[in-house]
Each structure stands twice: as C-alpha cells, then as structure tokens.
Design a protein around this nucleic acid. Structure first.
Lengths: 213, 213
DNA sequence: GACATTAGTATCACCGTGATACTAATTCCC
DNA sequence: GGGAATTAGTATCACGGTGATACTAATGTC
C-alpha cells in the first residue's frame, strides 16, 4: 500500500443554473430521469480538465449558450463518489421551455436537489455584493428597472427604487444613453450602459447582524 | 465501460488553520516536508467518512485541540488527485511554536500554498460578517479590546474603537460582567460575555462597491 | 507627582437608507 | 377626446450608522 495513498472516488459535477425571469428565479433542469423526474445538468471532468473547465463545458452543452457566471460552491463525498457542485447565472431565455423550472417549484426535484438549489441561490446573492455579475445578464443597453428586477429576482425581495438608483449613480457604474425604450404600458424608460470600473475598496465598519440560515 | 462512469481520482484534504495572535494572523504549518519546508495539515478521508468529518479529524490530530470553525472553501483537480481545501479558525495558542507561521511570512510556503492561505483569510473575513465565530475564539469572559483585536487580525485592518463598540452594543450581543481585568499597563478593562441571539434578518439596500481581488 | 498607557465616552458632521409623495410620459378603455 | 391605469423618475425628510476628534478614567512607570 503506497504511503499517503488515500481514498479513490469517482468525480462528478452538478451544475445549478439560475436565470432571473420577470423578477423570479428559474432553475435549469434539462434532463429527464428514468422515473420522469427532471434533473440538473451533470457530468464528469475529462482527463486533464480542470473542474471549472468541465463545469463550463457541461453547462454549455446543456444550455446551448454560455453562462454569465459560474462558480464552485461545495463538494460532497458519498459512497465512493465525490460530487463538485457549481452554481451559475444565465441571461433570461425567452422561451417557456419546461426545463426552466420556477424556483418555488424546486421541491419537485427532491429534497437533496432542492437543497442544492437553495445553496446556489445563496451563492448567487453573494455574487451580487462582490461582482458586477448582474450586468452580464443584460444586453449592452438596459433600463434601470431591468437591472433592479434582476437584483430582486436573485435576492428574493423587493428593493426600494429610489435607493437602488441613488446607490447605482453614486457608484458611477452606469451611464445614460440617449435612447428610451417604450415597453408597452407606462412611461418609456431611459437606457443605460454599464461602465466597468476599478472596484473601490469599500472599507466600512463591522456588521454584527449576521444573517439567518 | 459502465455508463456515466467518469473520472476516478484520489481524494485528499488540505486544512488551512488560522489563529489571531496579538492583532495578527498566523497559519498552522505543523509538518516538515522532505526538503525542510513547512507544510499545511493534510490527509485523506476514510471510507464512509464525510469531507467535513475528515477535515475536522485531520485538524484535530494536527492541533491537539478542536477548531472553533471549519468550512470547506474550494476543490481542485490536478493530476488524478482531487484536493478539497478547508479553512478553519482556532483560538490563539499561547505557544511560540514555529509551526505557527505569521501570515506575512506565508510566502515561504511557496506560491500555491500562499494562495491557499489568502483564500482562507478571505473566507474567514466572510465568516465574521455572517456568524458569531469571533466569540468562539475567546474565553467565556473577555474584554471588548480582545474582541476587536480578533476582528482586526482577521480583517487585516484597524477598526474604529467607538464605532466597533456602538455596533456591538446596539446588536445586544454582549453583556457586561462585574469583573475587570488589569492587563499590566493602563486602565483595567471590563469583562463581557457573549449573549447568543437569534440572528436579526438584516435587509439593507444593495451595495455596488464590490471588493477587489 | 508627572507621564505613558490603555479603557471608555461624548459630540459632531456626514452619508446612505427607506418612507412618502410627488411629477412625467405613455397606453388602455370608454 | 379624455380620464384612468401604468410605469418611470425625482424630491424631500427623518432616521440611524460611521468615523473623526477630543475628552475623561484608571492604572503602571519613572
């Protein structure tokens, strides 16, 4: 027995892809299991491939398009199989493909998968605080309401319109264009563009109100 | 070849243990590699053992004491070996054991390990925002300066004393005892106890000043 | 007894947040 | 044509947290 050998296991990858759609989040469940239940994209890394590359490949193959963001979340080891879970965010598809399951109905995927979905949503909410990922889910020109809808879908709560815009303006992250878009009812909205910016090191005091769950 | 077989790999676990010590962070490097270089605790899960249980066992065996907090950070796959990295926080040991390497000198561990250490520090800073982990690094009674020192060590920056205390008081997380501790020089400090509390769902606006790196 | 050192508090200006309420521009419907 | 509904966008205000400054308090050192 070689020294420091350790356990051997099969490596698998699960990918939870989320897409904001009209203020709600949907989960991508492209495959049908033998019992007719929907399931997440899954696969195995190829020899020499990194986990990140494998997850991107698996996601792309299942989706047909690239993901806007993809990050490793957690790894679990069960019965000789190590499963690395990735979460990703995807721009809203305009389809009504049943593979896109509203987040609230994720319970139909079973308890284990439902847990994966909740972890993915928590991870995605964290990305919003740390990265400009929301802008990757939008076309080059977008309305501030579009942007806010994405935040609301991922955070799962309504945001204050004026505060959202003030914070956005003071971060100088968006620049108005001269175009306006009429979305049917209501006043047309001005279109904005994302202005990439060196992250400002935000050092603010310590927060003692940790979140639940 | 069985269907959906996938790649097989050896599973290993690396543990980055951090301890605040007088406002600075140290990394636990108990083992000596053949070349004389210090290295992180490492090991393999046993058959049927979860990754979390294995990491806790490996940390405990290397330390001799339990860790205050331990969480999975990331998994990488290289050359037929999957390595799951855990980060942990430990109460300050009163030793001057050279196994406790000041964080600034982590460069001597090599570029790869240094990266692991930086990732662990980032993870630990995140825990401070989400969990009462700092209190686990202190005895039952502690001074507010002790607590602030832990925050400063992990966050890597000085905090405003009055703000720190105000935030702490308003969160009602600590209760003063009737004891005071004299630490040699200076005015004695009042001792406090941690008051566990149901986390207050803090829903505040969105932040657009994401952090660098 | 003066000084250094550490603990702890008071005050103030500033800024971000969220509530409320308003104006603006469009479509819908009669 | 005209009002209601709808969506976009802004103004104002009260409140609370933050950080700077400066102060008081209690101990040890010289």
């Amino acid at each position: 027995m070689p020294r420091r050998a350790g356990l051997r296991a099969t490596i698998r990858i699960d990918v939870v892809l989320l897409a904001p759609q009209r203020g709600r989040l949907s989960v991508f469940t492209p495959t049908l299991e033998p019992r007719g239940r929907r399931a997440l994209p899954s696969g195995a890394p190829r020899s020499g491939e990194s986990l990140e590359a494998a997850a991107a490949r698996i996601a792309r193959a299942a989706l047909g398009t690239s993901v806007a963001w993809l990050e490793q979340v957690t790894t679990r080891l069960e019965g000789g199989q190590a499963t690395v879970m990735f979460a990703g965010l995807v721009a809203r598809p305009d389809t009504d493909d049943p593979a896109w399951l509203p987040r609230e109905r994720a319970a139909s995927l079973g308890a284990a998968t439902r847990r994966l979905v909740e972890d993915a949503v928590t991870a995605a909410a964290g990305w919003l605080d740390r990265t400009p990922v929301a802008f990757r889910l939008l076309p080059g020109a977008f309305t501030l309401s579009d942007l806010q809808e994405i935040y609301e879908a991922i955070l799962g709560r309504a945001l204050h319109k004026a505060s959202f815009r003030r914070a956005l303006q003071s971060a100088r992250l968006v620049a108005p264009t001269k175009e306006w878009r009429s979305e049917g009812r209501g006043r047309p909205a001005q279109l904005y563009r994302f202005v990439p910016r060196a992250p400002r090191a935000s050092r603010r005091g310590v927060r003692f109100d940790w979140l639940s769950s």
